[in-house]
């Protein structure tokens, strides 16, 4: 009996030491997935409960944050009752060429410096929220949470090539949205002439187009 109690205490001490410190990160990840604070609260609670109950499957000293993110994403997907996608894209060249063409249009019309604008924060968040799954999860894991392709592949349960193709598609979808936003918001040459929404508040100010 004493041996069992000691084992439980050791388990709880390890959980407190390795898993509990990641509550903030898991919450942020859950909020990125759910885009709703109440839903994120539920996902976080369910994540840690599942993690505690399956703590015996966790390899001590390994990447606990990644392990928790995996559980969190699975909890999120179950909460949405979504089937795992079965159709994967292998169209990275198509996405790369498409965004090259979009960039060309942005250069012609004078809003290719849009990502240097400090006032783009809310637009970036809004654009990310509109990217559909499974591309949004991949963008969040790699580009926002700065995880490697390998970590993303393990977390998502897909090959690294699938991470790459989802990432490229997600980036393309975001850039298309943002460049459309920039054009509609008057970031281009025409707006520069009228003085609207063209101030570059970054060290790249010298790259801003000057009106004649």
């Amino acid at each position: 009996m004493q041996i069992a109690n000691n084992a439980f205490r050791d388990r709880d001490a390890a959980f407190e030491r390795e898993a509990i410190p990641w509550i903030d990160d898991v919450y942020r990840f859950a909020l990125s997935l759910t885009r709703d604070e109440a839903d994120a609260d539920d996902v976080v609670q369910d994540t840690f409960l599942r993690a505690y109950r399956s703590w015996h499957t966790y390899l001590p000293g390994s990447d606990c944050r990644r392990w928790l993110f995996t559980i969190c994403r699975n909890v999120f997907l179950r909460s949405r009752e979504r089937a795992r996608p079965t159709v994967e894209l292998d169209s990275t060249e198509v996405d790369a060429i498409a965004i090259g063409a979009v960039y060309s249009a942005a250069v012609r019309e004078g809003y290719d410096d849009v990502f240097a604008r400090l006032d783009l924060g809310p637009a970036i968040s809004a654009a990310l929220a509109k990217v559909p799954e499974p591309f949004r999860s991949t963008l969040i894991i790699v580009d926002v949470e700065d995880q490697s392709y390998e970590a993303a592949a393990e977390l998502l349960g897909v090959p690294i090539g699938t991470v790459r193709s989802r990432l490229f598609r997600g980036r393309r979808l975001m850039q298309e949205q943002l460049l459309t936003y920039a054009k509609d918001a008057g970031f281009g040459i025409g707006a520069a002439t009228s003085g609207a929404a063209t101030t570059c508040l970054t060290p790249t100010m010298k790259e801003c187009r000057q009106t004649a």
Partner: peptide, 30 residues
């Protein structure tokens, strides 16, 4: 610009409280 979304926003105390309460119900006793 995407990486700037990686804010240091933490979980609200209410969420942390809920997590610890549900773990306690499951037997968690650090």
């Amino acid at each position: 610009a995407l990486s700037l979304l990686r804010t240091r926003r933490g979980a609200p105390w209410s969420v942390k409280g809920r997590v610890l309460a549900s773990l306690s119900d499951a037997g968690y006793a650090p």
